[in-house]
Design a binder for these strands. Structure first.
Length: 205
DNA sequence: TAGTAGCA
DNA sequence: GCCT
């Protein structure tokens, strides 16, 4: 992969590389992610308030992000008790290309969005060190990504993230509220059954 | 409040 | 899209 290319666009201090991954790289990554899901099956997380999230998720790496009535946190094992699988090399390559960070990620969260899935506005703040960025990879159907402010409320900006796009949430943007408003069904043929995969990598400790 | 529904 |  190219070394530290310039981002295509920057939205609210979040750099976005459109089509950083070629179609061939996207296909290979999806194949790697199928291996992750086989070892650590997708589950439907429940928020601390007891509501089921519309995305299904799993993780790879040393820690995986989970939520249930006990709260949001990183855990060293899948809810089944099995250890999380290794982060695929294809995914790590993206981190090393765009993160600008020395340490490798300790957590790789894999979120699957069906046609109707959404993600409400939130901050990523379950990590110990906000100096490390969050790197996000989009695969499959396009998603409307909304970026807000350091506190709830106020004006927001949106951008469509398409298959192969990568963005980095770091620096001054690290704690911005953000979310996914909707998925555009049929916008990609990468996933035979449609939907979107979002892969996010983080340093957790 | 990593949620939802309702109205326009 | 805006509101909560």
């Amino acid at each position: 992969m190219k070394n530290s290319p310039e981002p295509t666009v920057v939205v609210r201090r979040i750099p976005v590389w459109k089509q950083l991954l070629s179609p061939e790289q996207q296909i290979a990554m999806v194949e790697d992610l199928r291996g992750v899901v086989k070892a650590a099956p997708l589950f439907s997380p429940v928020t601390p308030s007891g509501k089921e999230m519309s995305v299904r998720m799993t993780s790879a790496g040393k820690f995986g992000w989970v939520t249930d009535r006990r709260g949001y946190r990183y855990e060293p094992k899948h809810p089944s008790g099995a250890p999380w699988p290794e982060v695929p090399e294809s995914v790590l390559d993206v981190w090393r290309t765009v993160s600008g960070y020395d340490r490798d990620p300790e957590s790789c969260l894999v979120n699957f969005y069906g046609t109707d899935a959404k993600m409400g506005m939130h901050q990523d703040k379950d990590e110990a060190d906000f100096n490390a960025p969050v790197v996000s990879i989009s695969l499959g159907d396009a998603a409307l990504f909304r970026i807000g402010n350091l506190e709830r409320g106020g004006k927001t900006e949106s951008i469509w993230l398409e298959s192969g796009d990568v963005c980095v949430i770091g620096g001054e943007a690290r704690l911005l509220y953000h979310g996914i408003d909707r998925i555009r069904p049929g916008s990609s043929s990468l996933l035979p059954n449609g939907g979107r995969i979002n892969v996010t990598m983080r340093v957790v400790t």
